[in-house]
Design a protein around this nucleic acid. Structure first.
Length: 193
DNA sequence: AGCGGGATTTTCT
DNA sequence: GAAAATCCCGCTT
């Protein structure tokens, strides 16, 4: 019950929710295995933003983005990668926050085995995060309050620990400073930008 | 350390 | 038919 109330902050606008997700944790359960990670890098996407999948309106692909906050939006890209977002904002408004990088807290050996990599390469990029946490299309629309993947809210980080900059890998909307990451965290995908 | 290209398929024009 | 919210490998400095 309390866990439903404390995801309330997700209903704000994407560019304000994105920095508040830094430091929050995700817990992934598969059978008796538990993986827990800390979110260290995010990007905001909103329907008023030309770079967002929701910009062109509600389609079959973006339907979850227009639903209520607290659900997972998973999309497939570049013919081989999944990326995951946390849906934010009010129902009917298409917005989400892309999880670009996470730091392993528990179960890092499971993540490393699934990635075939070690160190920061386990999860320092959006598609790497999905592979490490075994997130694919089946989890699109998943409720993050329960089940095999949960969002665990944490107190806001102090401003001086947060770096704000422009987003990565887009060709339009480049100037919006809607990328946020934890300062000096080794898992950030591109520290020098 | 940095650049360039290939992989591979969903989605919308 | 082309672009895509990316990653990895191999080649060159």
């Amino acid at each position: 019950m309390a866990s439903e109330l404390n995801l309330q902050f997700l209903e704000g606008v994407a560019s304000e929710v994105a920095p508040r997700l830094l430091g929050c944790e995700l817990e992934r359960r598969e059978g008796n295995q538990v993986i827990r990670v800390k979110i260290v890098e995010t990007e905001a996407y909103d329907q008023t933003d030309v770079a967002s999948h929701s910009y062109k309106g509600r389609t079959q692909r973006t339907d979850v983005m227009f639903g209520p906050a607290g659900y997972l939006y998973v999309y497939f890209t570049y013919g081989m990668h999944y990326c995951c977002n946390i849906v934010v904002g009010k129902e009917g408004h298409g917005a989400a926050v892309l999880i670009r990088a996470v730091e392993p807290v528990e179960g890092s050996e499971i993540m490393a085995a699934r990635r075939g990599k070690s160190g920061v390469d386990i999860s320092n990029g959006p598609a790497k995060v999905c592979q490490a946490l075994a997130i694919d299309k089946k989890l699109n629309g998943h409720d993050l309050r329960s089940g095999v993947l949960r969002l665990i809210p944490k107190p806001d980080l102090p401003d001086e620990m947060i770096v704000q900059t422009v987003r990565v890998g887009i060709s339009q909307g480049k100037d919006l400073p809607w990328r946020f990451y934890i300062k000096s965290n080794p898992y950030v995908s591109r520290p020098n930008s």
